[in-house]
Amino acid sequence: MSLSSAVITFPGSNCDRDAQTYLEILTNQDTHKIWHKDVLLPKVDLLIIPGGFSFGDYLRSGAMAAKSPIIDDVLKHAERGGYIIGICNGFQILTEIGLLDGALNRNVKLKFLAKNCFIKKNHENNFNKKISQDQCLSIPVAHNEGSYYNSEEGLKLLQDNEQISFLYCDEEGNTTDSSNLNGSLNHIAGITNKKKNVLGLMPHPERAFQDFHTSQDGQLILESLLG
């Protein structure tokens, strides 16, 4: 399947070029670059909201980006059933927009955390269907506010609707206190919306797909979408 795509840049985004490279190499076609002040998205299958420190992360991560002019059309894209992946700051923005439930709090150890981590698939969806149930993906994280939070009812809804896409785990797939490196609720590393066309995840698949990267596991997420 061919997959057309776009990446939004906000002031302070710093993984927009990485997302673009990830998309262009794996989909083998050009990606649209969108500026946050644009008001219309091109017709594309997939939109990536990249990582970084949009608006300096001032006030709250993602809060100001969520009020950008382009967001109205992002909501429409989601409504139409278009795919969206929000990575890191992109995940934070998606929760601030309200497309994803919950919020991302400061890492429990109060330190920026940049290292390779392991995640595994939980509920199956179009973003992870190429990943087998017992497979551990090695993918870098780099964030200061990645500790996923939701209320008890919210969490139950995620569970019931099978929206919990990825969990932090160790190399062998165990979810332990130490593998849950930012203190996320129930080890959550990535969730989808109810319709399962919007994914938010803290780890960076776009830093784990080329032959010189420490791991190539990040390919699997895009490949799942490519069918």
Partner: peptide, 9 residues
């Protein structure tokens, strides 16, 4: 409600 506070947390 619109910006300063995220009422979820």
């Amino acid at each position: 409600n619109k910006l300063l506070v995220n009422s979820i947390i």
